[in-house]
Amino acid sequence: MKKLSILIVSLLILSALLSACAGQQQAQKIRIALILPSTVDDLSWSQGMTEGVKAVQAELGEDKVEVAISERLGNPTDAAAAIRQYASQGFDLIIAHGSQYQSVLEEIAPEFPKTSFAYGTGFQAHDNIFAYDPQAQEGAYLQGMLAAKLTKTNIIGVVGPIEAGDAIKYNYGFEQGVKAVNPDAEVRIAYTGSFGDIAKAAELAKAHMDAGADILTGTAQQTVGAIRACAERPGVYWLGNDMDQSSIAPNTVLTAQAYDWKSVVMQMVKFRQEGKVGGEHLVLSLANGGLNIVVNPNLSSVIPADVMAMIEQAKKDIIDGKLVVELPK
């Protein structure tokens, strides 16, 4: 029995050594692992990041970047197993794409000091943990201004998931944008209580529209359901978040605040090449181009030139620091 256990332990050590050697041989190559809460095709948060990582891979070359993806790991317990496995397989950069992964990273990261970990939305960067943090309120402010200018009923509906994280930032910024140009417009915020219930989101959007809203917005992957519901009613526009969602409703999705995940991933890769494995708090903002307002070319005529100019001006003011979009305290 004792002999057997010695044998097993030595085998384990051997295999660990072997995998370590294998890791060294591939030193030229950067290996990126991605942990996603939903799926690579959710047309929002997870798909946005997937496309960002793929874009980095395309730019640096397939032979220079290896990408591995694990989906549907919304709850941190299952994600932790995946993160730990990627780390022990010698991945260089492990991106856990959600706020909920903060505590598991804090637990695992110290054991793999050479590996870089990243998570977001978040701010607690550590030795080898990057935290990225989209300033969702900034683009939301601009979209709020747009909504306030375009609404004819003075009612704007928000289809929210769970009142937390990005949704709070987005809604808070959006309301400020609306109030800044049209204090009479009413922003009605409602939540479905879930991130992924697209049928409920659709129903909530319908209720908003029945109650008079003609401009709608919202966050999380469930909004695709709400967008489709809006597409049934001519004259109603949707302002999106996360990424350009106009493909599912070309005549309804007017704009979107799109996150440029590619730049974030590229930045982390650069930091690593400079020998920095973590400790940075990466902000996606209008100023650094991490956030963009994408206008659906199909519908660009809907936005009057003066409104567009006003929004451009506000964008400049935010970038210059003249205009600060508040966050809830």
């Binding site: 903060q102 769970i162 930032k169």
Partner: peptide, 23 residues
């Protein structure tokens, strides 16, 4: 759970920083 996590039980640093993640 979500109500308490984003209300009375939330980590004060989450509020201070404005990320507001419910934990």
């Amino acid at each position: 759970l979500v109500f308490l996590l984003r209300g009375p039980l939330i980590d004060p640093t989450e509020i201070a920083y404005g990320t507001g993640f419910p934990q």
